[in-house]
Amino acid sequence: MDIFLQQILNGLVLGSIYALIALGYTMVYGIMGLINFAHGEVVMVGAMVTITVISTLMGAGIALPGPLLVLIGLMVAIPACMLLGFTIERVAYRPLRGAPRLAPLITAIGLSIVLQQLAILIWGRNYISFPQILSHDTISIMGASITELQLIIVVLCLAIMGGLLLMVEKTKLGRAMRATSQNPAVAGLMGVNVNTVISATFMIGSGLGAIAGVMVATNYDQAHYYMGFLIGLKAFTAAVLGGIGNLAGAVAGGILLGIIESLGAGYIGGLTGGFLGSHYQDIFAFMVLILVLIFRPSGLMGEKVADRA
């Protein structure tokens, strides 16, 4: 088996999920110059809600095909997360508009903790496993293997991200979002209700987060109240890598980070003579974050933001 190709495929799966989450960070940053560190928790809630819905349906003896159950779960999780994102902005960030930058940042971190604690109250501290309802059959591509589920994840991520970029580029709401991010005062003069645009941005990002959460849960077969922390931090890294505030950058950064991480995990054992194993894969994301912040803080596709981050 070709380990290189295999790791690229693994990286693509991981990376497209990072990208989906990174979009949530970058959209919010683009419009308000704010890093919503609670976004990882929205992803976690998306996973938890979906699992709860599926388990409830199954517990009630409703026998439906696996993919349909997941779809129903998503149909509940997406609006739930959108509502959560809307509420987060209204309750935690809106009152702090115009406050020094440190205030919303600390609030974001506090909010993450609050959401984790709420998740513990609702779902407990233990890992919750994703019901075994999806096929894990694998397909082999040039000697490397990928599960059907992973293939669906990648295709779905790319389709959703393409749709989002198209929406932002081509629709009136998208244009208003871009205008608001460039000059909110003048956008207001044009009749754009900036608060509505900001709410919409949070809701769209959170909806994407919900989908990503379900993907993470299906890919790892489990969810946990703390899962949002690491995946959120990695997606944030992806957003910074691509150039925070830049949507296409978030997509590229996410996929690139996934591949770097996966290749790193594949080769770290060999490179360190077995001293470090593949479970050290998380260090790559943070090495990337540190290197980008030192050498190219504006990211691959971003303009100079320097002190804004």
Binding site: R175, R178, A179, Q182, N183, A185, V186, A187, L189
Partner: peptide, 11 residues
């Protein structure tokens, strides 16, 4: 038309 024109530079 605001002072400094206020065009959206990246539109």
């Amino acid at each position: 038309v605001p002072e400094g024109r206020g065009v959206f530079p990246k539109l």
